[in-house]
Nucleic acid binder design. Structure first.
Length: 363
DNA sequence: AAGACGGGGCA
DNA sequence: TGCCCAGTCTT
């Protein structure tokens, strides 16, 4: 009797009962009691949180979500915002194409859809930055659609529940079909959030808490193998090392010379200090030969930063420079307002290496 | 189908 | 410190 595959009709009630007891109170959520009274979450809030949650943990997202909502209370406000202000508000959250697409999506909703998000999966998927997962999540959570929501957490839960041996990403269609079969007509949004919560808190990548799992009597992986070894996945390749140099110029007014990166590509649309290209070549130009303007550059050592597909070792140089002696299309930013700039983490590391107090709180 | 694209959490 | 995590868009 134990560890039988779960009848599809039993899964949702079992999981929702667990969800109602362990529900997490998050800024973009409507509580289960409210949901049962027919209150649905604001599609703008659901969309904003789901885009932020792509590849990003709940903990990291909370503060950004509150900041965005306070700066731009409606999707029309966001559509009217300056691109640069959106990039500044997004700085530090990573995957900056998300911020560029967020702005484009807000404009599309405001200008082409009368300020209302489409209420179907297909309609949502046609918008910038909304793919399979996010379209299904918004449709289920904000519009009560019975869509199959499959993110990394759900993939883990499903792969263990059915002990799926096919490695990812080939197993995705099978997993999606499994989720679709389990998703109920009633409360599909809560079901989706419950599956994701289960993956985030109980069915974790390492050391899952199987004894607390509402599916423990039905989990194939728990019965026949080690749940931690699921989902199976193709092995990843190792990251190359790239090198470069970064130049932190400081003028007499204690301002740092910044410039804007290209709109697309790595860290697209974000700000940076001047520097070399980042290259994997052994003869990479990491020296003073590539200084952006002549000055008495002082060697500040190196910093390291790991990106998704390469590791970067950056030589950092600092110099005091007269503002009149520089050329180019950058600008001078006072050290005390650096924190509010659209600076990605690697640039904050480089600046902090040259100016240790740069991002310390004001006394 | 594979690669580009950040940053944070955990042991 | 090193390893793991994981949606969307582009090629």
């Amino acid at each position: 009797m134990m560890h039988d595959t779960i009848p599809a009709a039993d899964a949702a009630p079992l999981l929702l009962e667990w969800y109602d007891r362990h529900h997490r109170d998050l800024p973009w959520r409507v509580s289960p009691p409210m949901a049962r009274r027919g209150i649905v979450a604001d599609p703008y809030h659901v969309w904003l949180s789901e885009v932020m949650l792509q590849q990003t943990t709940v903990q990291a997202v909370k503060a950004y979500f509150e900041k965005f909502l306070s700066l731009w209370p409606t999707v029309e406000d966001l559509a009217r915002a300056e691109n640069e202000d959106v990039m500044k508000a997004w700085a530090g959250l990573g995957y900056y194409a998300r911020a560029r697409n967020l702005k484009k999506c807000a404009e599309a909703v405001a200008n082409d859809h009368g300020g209302r998000f489409p209420d179907t999966e297909d309609g949502l998927k046609s918008l910038p930055g909304i793919g399979d997962y996010t379209a299904a999540a918004i449709a289920a959570i904000a519009f009560n659609r019975r869509s199959a929501v499959l993110d990394g957490n759900v993939e883990r839960v499903i792969s263990r529940l059915y002990a799926i041996e096919t490695p990812l990403p080939a197993a995705k269609p099978e997993m999606r079909a499994r989720v679709a079969a389990l998703t109920p007509e009633s409360r599909p949004g809560d079901f989706a959030q419950a599956m994701m919560d289960l993956g985030a808190t109980i069915c974790t990548p390492k050391r899952p808490a199987c004894s607390l799992c509402p599916f423990r009597a039905h989990c194939r992986a728990l019965a026949v193998a080690d749940p931690e070894t699921f989902p199976r996945k193709a092995q990843k390749k190792d990251k190359p090392l790239r090198r470069g140099a970064a130049f932190v110029a400081i003028d007499a007014d204690n301002a740092v010379y910044l410039r804007k990166r290209a709109e697309t590509g790595l860290l697209g649309g974000m700000s940076e200090v001047p520097g070399t290209d980042w290259t994997s070549r052994q003869d990479g130009d990491t020296s003073l030969a590539s200084q952006p303007f002549a000055a008495a550059w002082e060697d500040c050592g190196t910093i390291s930063h790991v990106f998704t597909h390469f590791e970067l070792r950056l030589s950092v140089y600092r110099a005091n420079v007269a503002r009149a002696g520089t050329q180019g299309n950058g600008w001078w930013e006072p050290v005390h307002s650096l924190s509010a700039q659209a600076l990605p983490t690697v640039m904050k590391k480089a600046i902090a290496q040259a100016i240790p107090h740069a991002f310390k709180a004001e006394r």
